[in-house]
Design a protein around this nucleic acid. Structure first.
Length: 507
RNA sequence: GCCGCGUUGGUCAAUCGGCUAAGACGCAUCCCUUUCACGGAUGAAUGACGGGUUCGACUCCCGUACGCGGUACCA
């Protein structure tokens, strides 16, 4: 049985960004495809960084995307607890085991001393000196201090960290599911901290211990973790678990649209598109950050577009449902290179999904999305309206501006487009049009067009020009579906009323 | 600086040695429509560079350049 985990650490500012959701998505697809368990782990490692509500937020986002984990802090499961803060007791013993075996050591250097060391050894060739096999000889740690001194420091309650002792010159390699074989030299990696002075493990120790205890078989993470892979590799080896090491896949990054670096929250602010799945309130600034959900994206489209950013099935198919993704996804078709995010294409996906979903489903979604606009609307009417306007909507928020006139008469008219051409004969035309329509029964709404055209012919006015005016009477401006589609939807009474309203304000 | 990973049109990308290099987004022109869209048609636009290997290289190898990531008691 495969076990695939996804882990999340609450970032200092919170929020679940595109790259994060895509990592979960690929994990999820892989798990479903191989009939494996999909496990959520919350890494609230550092209490000072932990953000209130971040965990629930992550769970809500995943739920919205339809990527609900099988096991985790909410669902529970056999290898819990799933929150790192509740697993503290596990890490210390393993760290001690590493020290005893000579694979790790205690370091008593204060932050100031570390600072000083970096300053002192900084050169042009080595601008960021590392705490590594060379420098550790000169620092205050259990390798350089005598046994007695170490003991007295510990007895005195001196804070210390536990660092891994990276071998001087070994070659390490592993096979990444996406990248193939990747090789590192241990001497070039620093002695990473495993346990911090506050006794909490760092990511490096925590992932390894947790993945082992939880019997994780596969793990996906962002490419930014690749450089620390040798540390994790060594930990698996030193703890004697090498044969049970999970398979890793390092996913390519999602890049800024125009250029340089990873996509960040600030890019969204700057360029006017969301980067989070759902709305997030920054706990420090109280700033509310709109997510894809609030922006008017369908979860189906969101998942679809994310899946295609860095993967495709080799065919021309672009629109995939989640079940289709599960059956077509394959990890070896995931790209190695990062992909720039393109908001225009994202909207195109959403447009495609709006057309794809049934009008009934769209009605439900719209009522949910904007109860203030659609909550009290008759559903059968709403479905008709959706059918009339959906092809011109890219976002859920487009619906109201494309359809408000189906529910209420326009409050402003684009008179600039009317006045230069408006003549008395036009007014006469519409007055007689009202008269003729008044004789109709409400059910004969379909006859409007015929009457309109007959009357235009009688009065010898071009129907095209008349339609322009008619449109503005009905919707207020030059937009919306074909006019007679509108009249037959809003009905006889409304149509007459709107003509009258317009005539009253134009003269 | 060092280490790792990348590099096909503006963007997402197909191609696993036979290429006249797909498709999509975006863009342009035209058609449809006397609205805004949708749709349809057409078009402009791509293998970073230099060496190999090979009958043949976008595809394999080696350099160079460029980009990204890492280089924290952050994840």
């Amino acid at each position: 049985m495969k076990k695939i985990r996804v882990r999340f650490a609450p970032s200092p500012t919170g929020g679940l960004h595109l790259g994060g959701v895509r990592t979960v998505l690929y994990n999820y697809l892989f798990a479903r495809q191989h009939d494996g368990d999909f496990i959520l782990r919350i890494e609230d490692t550092d209490q000072s960084r932990f953000v209130e509500g971040a965990e629930q937020y992550i769970i809500d986002c995943l739920k919205w995307c339809g990527l609900t984990p099988d096991e985790g802090p909410v669902a529970g499961g056999p290898v819990g607890p799933y929150r790192q803060s509740e697993r503290k007791q596990y890490y210390g013993a393993y760290a001690q085991q590493l020290i005893d075996a000579g694979y790790a050591y205690m370091a008593f250097d204060t932050p100031e001393e570390l600072e000083q060391m970096r300053e002192q050894f900084k050169t042009v060739q080595d601008p960021q000196p590392q705490y590594n096999h060379r420098l550790r000889e000169q620092m205050r740690n259990s390798l350089t201090l005598g046994e007695k001194e170490v003991k007295s420091l510990i007895d005195a309650g001196t804070p210390y960290v536990i660092r891994i002792a990276m071998p001087v010159d070994e070659e390490l390699s592993f096979t990444d599911m996406i990248r193939g074989e990747v090789t590192f030299k241990t001497g070039l990696v620093d002695d990473k901290v495993l346990i911090k002075a506050d006794g909490m493990p760092t990511y490096h120790l925590a992932v390894v211990v947790d993945d082992y205890l939880m019997k994780i078989t596969h793990a996906f993470r962002g490419e930014e973790w690749l450089p620390s892979a040798p540390v994790h590799l060594l930990l698996w080896k030193y703890l004697g678990w090498q044969s049970q090491m999970p398979q890793w896949a390092h996913l390519p990054l999602i890049l800024k649209p125009e250029g340089h670096g990873k996509l960040s929250k600030r890019d969204g602010d700057r360029l006017g598109f969301p980067v989070f799945a759902m709305e997030w309130t920054d706990p420090k600034t109280d700033e509310q950050i709109e997510g894809f959900k609030e922006k008017g994206f369908l979860p189906e489209a969101f998942v679809n577009l994310l899946a295609m950013l860095g993967w495709n099935d080799g065919s021309e198919k672009e629109i995939f449902t989640l079940p289709e993704l599960i059956s077509s996804f394959s990890i070896d078709r995931v790209h190695k290179g990062g992909a720039r995010f393109d908001y225009e294409k994202a909207k195109w996906f959403n447009h495609a999904w709006i057309q794809r979903l049934s009008d009934e489903t769209m009605a439900e979604r719209l009522v949910q999305f904007s109860p203030s606009h659609y909550g009290s609307v008759e559903i059968s009417y709403l479905i008709k309206v959706i059918a009339a306007v959906k092809e011109r909507c890219h976002l859920l928020t487009d619906f109201w501006q494309q359809s408000s006139f189906f529910f209420e008469a326009p409050s402003v008219y684009d008179n600039d487009s009317v006045k230069p051409k408006w003549k008395d004969q036009h007014k006469e035309f519409y007055l007689s049009f009202i008269e003729r329509m008044a004789g109709l029964k409400p059910a004969e709404a379909g006859a409007f067009e015929q009457i309109f055209k007959e009357l235009a012919a009688e009065k010898q006015i071009k129907p095209g020009e008349l339609q322009m005016f008619f449109r503005i009477m009905l919707v207020g401006g030059k937009f919306g579906p074909p006019v007679f589609e509108i009249t037959s939807t809003i009905g006889l009474e409304q149509t007459i009323k709107r003509i009258e309203l317009f005539l009253a304000q134009i003269s």
